[in-house]
Each structure stands twice: as structure tokens, then as C-alpha cells.
Design a binder for these strands. Structure first.
Length: 528
DNA sequence: CGCTTTTGACCGGCGC
DNA sequence: GCGCCGGTCAAAAGCG
């Protein structure tokens, strides 16, 4: 085994050695050894036939020779050729194995002969290789199918659960007469309990009213949020949102919001930009306050006059996190890769718009809506009604942590303002205030960051279901776009599907000032 | 040469 | 009015 005879897998290091050699450099009774000296293959029988291959290599075909792998499995379709080096090659151990023996000398005088047989075997080998390749691809395909199936089944389960909870909510509403005190009439709709908790019921009930909390927050946001503390939130005061004149049609507000609505995507990426399938031209770069990383401004160049712009900035605390903020509507068709992200951001923007609509002044608690629409995915989406541009942030940087979901104390379900499953069901109740449905219809007019020719129609209730569906489908599509982004997005999806966790965050803040509590988080694209 | 990137200037909104 | 800040413009530089 130290005679310089070795067996190598194709394109790899030697994996075995011969103990001796005979006429053609090895003894057919020899054993093959791996590098550790462990016998891995046995050669038995004897050669009966010779054949020469094309001029540059000499091939010996061994007939009726049994080769056994270490599992005592016969290896068929063996052929052996002599070459100049002291190596042996084995390609495809599992199927049509070809053992290539190199004698290290040119003394071989093999007869010319059945070259067609050699060609056949070569073709067989080629076929075998292709088969292996195909099997590998099939395996990959199966794995991806499995993942998709898992996501799909999880979604179905969640949907079923939602239906059950809705039914439960409906029943409890019908039988609990005490809830009559909590009912607010709005076109015959039932105002969910959390609306009252959030002080929003009055807004829904009476457009002329706004909650005292909202007034306080809107009136002097900067007294609570210092500039240096949160640069983005500096301009994020809810009072800066284009307010809807109560006398104006709702659509006008929507149009105004559409123009300035932004979607921010946070994802881990070492690249300067996440690949979103579009072509961009950089037109500016600025140092943003509170962040040593410069903010780059890009304009879509896929079509002349496309108004879509995006800002790219690294997170100050974690520079592996890249925040990309999109604004505007593409005026051209998008390639599939771009559609993926565009759909994601569009769905997110739709959530944002739906969240900006219910209040007569165009305001509704953004945090509340984020939790309403994606109650189990607070890690993923944050909606900010921050001015000057309402922004929804898709945070794709969090890893799923199923255990965390189970650790949440049950008591947290009792915390007011949290949208626990029951409330979640209630806000998605078909009887929910019409304004939600209106928002949903309106949002279909918002092409967001998606091609105007490829808008996702989101006019079918229930609201959360549709947005969630779009987000899910878009996210699934986005997986194909970019490896880094895909990984982050996949993690985000998993956090949705696997995390049947009612949001436990910001409970305290929510009781006082949700906008404040979300300001830092929602300002993700600016200097956090 | 044409396109993209860089970078300082400029503009508008906002708070003081 | 002034300064700050975010955002954009446009000339210069870089690049293939």
C-alpha cells in the first residue's frame, strides 16, 4: 500500500491505496485503503479483457471482476485505464463506478480493441454523472418543496385558528350582554374592545373627536422625543402627518399619503445594497445626524422618469444591518426579482395606509395597527405614522426564536393594549368598523413600490388576512432574490409562522404613549 | 464617449 | 432671521 498506488475520487484527494499490483499495476485481490489505512474496497476476480482508449490514455477493461465497496456491495461497470501518474480515480462510487488506475509508467502495452466498448462505458459514466447531478437537484427540489409545504401548512393552521377565534369572538359577543356597554355604533359595526382601551373608539365613533392621548402626542411630540436622542423621530411627530380635513373625502388623504408613504426594509447584508432586482443610480450621499454611516440616495433608472427612490444606510449600532427605504411608484414593469421585494414593500405599505385611514384626522396609533395586522410578527413589521413620511419598517434582522414564544408568561395576555388572539380576532371581525374596510379598498389604489401594472389587489376582506397573505407570498418570492436577504426574510417568515406569541413588547409604553414607544423603532432608516 | 459616482452647493421645512 | 437638517442638484471625477 505504499507503492504509490492510490485511489482518488475525481477532483479530490486520494482516498485509497493498493497493497500490491500485478500485470496492470494492481492485484485483483488487493484491498483499497483510505488515508487512515482502513480497508474501504475489495477487488476480487481477475481481468479478462483489454482495451485501449484513445491515444492519450490507455484503458483496460476488466471483465467479470467483482468490486465490492466497504459495504460489500458489488460495483458494476468497472473500467480501468493506465495513465502516467501514480493515481487512481474513482468516479461515482454509488452507481457506475469507474476506477482509473495510473501505473506511473508508459510500459503498458495494452492491445487495441473494443474502443466502442470504451466509448460506451464513457457514455455510461457520463450518464451516471448526470444522473447523480439530477438526483442532487431533485433532492434540493424536495427540500425546498418541504420548506414551502411547511410554510403553507403553518399558514393554514394559523388561518384555521383565526377562523376559530373569530367564531369564538362572535359567539361571546352574541351571548355576553355586558358587552353591550362596550359597543359603539358606527354603521352598525362593533367596536373592538382594544379600540376603547386605546382611546380610539371615540375617534371612530365621532369624527369630530380625537382622543386626548392623541392630542397630547400630536401637539408636542418633541417634548418627549429629543432630537439628539432620536433624529428620525425628530421628524416623526405624528402631527406632521398630512392630516385629513374632516370635510375632505377620505380618498384625498389617501392620495396624499400614497405620495409620501415609505417602506423601510432592514436586513443583514455585507453588500452595499440589497439586491432588489431594480437598477438604481446614486444621486447623492449625506451624513445623517446620529449615524456615522453615510446615507446614500438612489433613483430608479429602469425607466425614464421613474419616480421611485430609495435610501440606503447602515445601522449605527450594527453595521451589518442595512436599511433600505423605498419611496414612490414604479412607472414600468418590474422583473420578477424586483416584483418580489416590491410586493413585500407594497403589502407593508398597504398596512401602513390601512393604518393611516381609520381616524378622521388620518391618524391611528401605528403601533396598534402593526400589532393588529401582524400580531404575531412584531419582529417583522413596524408601522410608523411618523412625519413627514409615514413609514412602515420591515425588520428582517431578527432570528426566529420559537422557545421565546413559549416563555411568554400567560399573564402578559392580560396586559391591556396588547392584541392577544381574542382581540386579534375581534379586529378582523367582518363586523369591524367600516372604515377599516374603506381603508382596505383605498389601499388598493396605492401602488406603493410596486409596478403600477402589477398591483396586488387587496380589496377582499378580511383586512389582516389579505395583507398577511400578500406579505407572505411576496416574502416567499423574495427568497429567490438574494441569498442574504433571503436568509433574513426566511427568518422573518419563520418568526411569523412559528411564533404564536402575542406581542409582549412595549406593554408599558403602550398604555401611555404608543407613538413614543415606537418612535425609535420606527425610525430605523435614519440613524439608529 | 457615455454612464455612474462623488461631493459640495443649494433649497425648503422646521424650530427657536 | 438664523441655524439645523433632510433631500436634491449638478459639476467634476471616475470608469469601462
Amino acid at each position: 500500500m505504499d507503492k504509490g498506488w492510490c485511489l482518488t475520487l475525481e477532483n479530490s484527494d486520494p482516498v485509497g491505496f493498493f497493497t500490491s499490483k500485478s500485470d496492470f499495476g494492481f492485484d485483483l485481490s488487493s484491498r483499497l485503503y483510505d488515508k487512515e489505512g482502513t480497508a474501504t474496497m475489495f477487488l476480487t476476480g481477475r481481468e479478462e479483457q483489454y482495451a485501449s482508449s484513445p491515444a492519450d490514455e490507455r484503458r483496460v477493461v476488466l471483465g467479470e471482476v467483482d468490486f465490492f465497496s466497504d459495504k460489500n456491495r458489488p460495483v458494476k461497470d468497472m473500467s480501468v485505464k493506465k495513465e502516467d501518474l501514480h493515481t487512481a480515480r474513482e468516479s461515482d462510487v454509488n452507481t457506475g463506478l469507474q476506477l482509473v488506475i495510473n501505473t506511473g509508467s508508459d510500459q503498458s502495452t495494452v492491445d487495441d480493441g473494443i474502443s466502442s466498448d470504451v466509448e460506451d462505458k464513457r457514455a455510461k459514466n457520463e450518464l451516471a454523472k448526470l444522473k447523480v447531478e439530477l438526483e442532487g437537484m431533485n433532492a434540493e427540489n424536495q427540500r425546498l418543496r418541504g420548506m414551502l409545504s411547511q410554510v403553507s401548512s403553518n399558514y393554514t393552521a394559523l388561518q384555521m385558528r383565526l377562523v376559530g377565534l373569530m367564531q369564538q369572538q362572535k359567539n361571546s359577543t352574541a351571548h355576553d350582554s355586558t358587552q353591550e356597554h362596550e359597543k359603539q355604533e358606527n354603521g352598525g359595526a362593533t367596536v373592538p374592545r382594544q379600540f376603547l382601551d386605546l382611546g380610539l373608539a371615540s375617534e371612530i365613533d365621532d369624527p369630530s373627536n380625537s382622543s386626548s392621548e392623541e392630542k397630547t402626542t400630536s401637539g408636542s411630540p418633541h417634548k418627549k422625543i429629543g432630537r439628539a436622542e432620536s433624529p428620525e423621530s425628530d421628524s416623526c411627530g405624528p402631527n406632521k402627518i398630512p392630516k385629513l380635513n374632516p370635510s375632505n373625502p377620505v380618498d384625498q388623504s389617501t392620495e396624499a399619503t400614497m405620495k409620501k408613504a415609505r417602506v423601510s426594509v432592514r436586513a443583514r447584508s455585507e453588500a452595499p445594497m440589497i439586491s432588489d432586482g431594480c437598477q438604481w443610480r446614486k444621486y447623492g450621499q449625506k451624513m445623517a445626524k446620529g449615524n456615522p454611516c453615510p446615507r446614500a440616495y438612489y433613483r430608479c433608472t429602469m425607466a425614464v422618469g421613474c419616480p421611485v427612490r430609495k435610501q440606503v444606510q447602515r445601522c449605527a449600532e450594527d453595521r451589518t444591518i442595512l436599511t433600505t427605504t423605498y419611496e414612490g411608484t414604479h412607472n414600468h414593469p418590474l422583473p420578477p426579482a424586483a416584483m418580489a421585494l416590491a410586493s413585500t414593500t407594497s403589502a407593508a405599505a398597504s398596512m401602513l395606509l390601512s393604518g393611516s385611514m381609520p381616524s378622521p384626522d388620518g391618524l391611528i396609533n401605528p403601533n396598534f395597527l402593526a400589532r393588529t395586522l401582524l400580531p404575531y410578527s412584531s419582529n417583522m413589521a413596524t408601522i410608523s405614522a411618523s412625519a413627514p413620511f409615514p413609514t412602515v419598517t420591515l425588520d428582517l434582522t431578527h432570528s426566529p426564536n420559537p422557545l421565546q414564544c413559549q416563555r411568554v408568561p400567560p399573564t402578559q395576555y392580560q396586559v391591556p393594549f396588547l392584541v392577544h388572539p381574542q382581540n386579534f380576532a375581534s379586529v378582523t371581525n367582518p363586523q369591524m368598523p367600516q372604515v377599516f374596510g374603506q381603508a382596505l379598498v383605498n389601499q388598493s389604489k396605492f401602488s406603493g413600490l410596486q409596478s403600477s401594472q402589477n398591483n396586488i389587489e387587496q380589496i377582499q376582506p378580511p383586512l389582516h388576512h389579505q395583507s398577511f397573505t400578500n406579505t407572505l407570498s411576496a416574502a416567499t418570492a423574495a427568497i429567490t432574490a438574494d441569498p442574504n436577504f433571503s436568509a433574513a426574510l426566511a427568518a422573518a417568515i419563520t418568526s411569523i409562522m412559528g411564533g404564536s406569541r402575542p406581542d409582549s413588547g412595549n406593554a408599558t409604553n403602550n398604555t401611555t404613549n404608543v407613538n413614543t414607544s415606537t418612535s425609535n423603532k420606527s425610525s430605523s432608516f435614519m440613524g439608529n
